[in-house]
């Protein structure tokens, strides 16, 4: 991990923690700043999970309104604000998929479907406007090249589609033990990115 990329991430984490403190004191400008910073990350993220632009917008809306109303539920000792936002966004998006599936059950309508990434969408960084810890994000992308295709696929299926390990074993016809081991390995590789200040040398 490049030193300046890591420093950038750490700087960002510190600023986020300050923003959240201000949000807890009802400072709307702090929320606007946090939005400008992370909506461009969590909007495509919610789109990836729900497959719908409209629902992805709802997810981002709900996440930031919840941050405003329940900013107090974030506890510093549990990690970065970014990871907290990611967990919140994921939960909200999966919830939308689940309720839409329940509603659509038995009707002709299309249920929400995870949206498969477009070809080479995940590789090119050229024309996109990366707003959040650019250098760090690029480092992470480089680092994730160390993951095997299967490791990455398993993580994505769990993360974006909420598949359980036994679902994956059935679906991919791979023994459960192998799934578990591959996922552990994949996550181990992710963990090599020093994400949080003072966590690892």
């Amino acid at each position: 991990m490049q030193q300046n990329a890591l420093a950038q991430r750490q700087q960002c984490d510190r600023e986020d923690a300050d923003l959240l403190k201000r949000i807890q004191r009802s400072d709307q400008r702090a929320l606007a700043t946090l939005y400008d910073r992370y909506a461009p990350v969590f909007y495509p993220f919610a789109l990836r999970i729900t497959g719908s632009h409209e629902v992805a917008e709802e997810v981002v809306h709900d996440v930031f309104v919840q941050v405003w109303e329940k900013g107090n539920s974030y506890a510093t000792q549990n990690g970065s604000v970014y990871a907290w936002l990611a967990a919140l966004s994921r939960m909200k998006a999966l919830e939308k998929v689940r309720t839409s599936n329940q509603k659509k059950k038995g009707s002709d309508g299309e249920a929400l479907q995870p949206r498969a990434p477009l070809e080479n969408e995940e590789k090119q960084g050229g024309q996109e406007t990366i707003l959040v810890f650019k250098g760090y994000a690029e480092e992470v992308r480089n680092m994730l090249k160390n993951l095997s295709k299967l490791e990455l696929r398993l993580l994505e299926l769990s993360y974006y589609e909420g598949q359980s390990q036994s679902d994956l074993a059935r679906m991919l016809r791979i023994p459960l033990g192998t799934i578990k081991a591959k996922m552990r390995r994949g996550i181990q590789k992710l963990r090599q990115a020093p994400a949080q200040e003072g966590k690892r040398p």
């Binding site: 990350v41 990611a86 760090y136």
Partner: peptide
């Protein structure tokens, strides 16, 4: 939580 939160950065 920190580790899996890196996945959205791929998008």
């Amino acid at each position: 939580y920190e580790a899996i939160a890196l996945l959205p950065l791929l998008l």
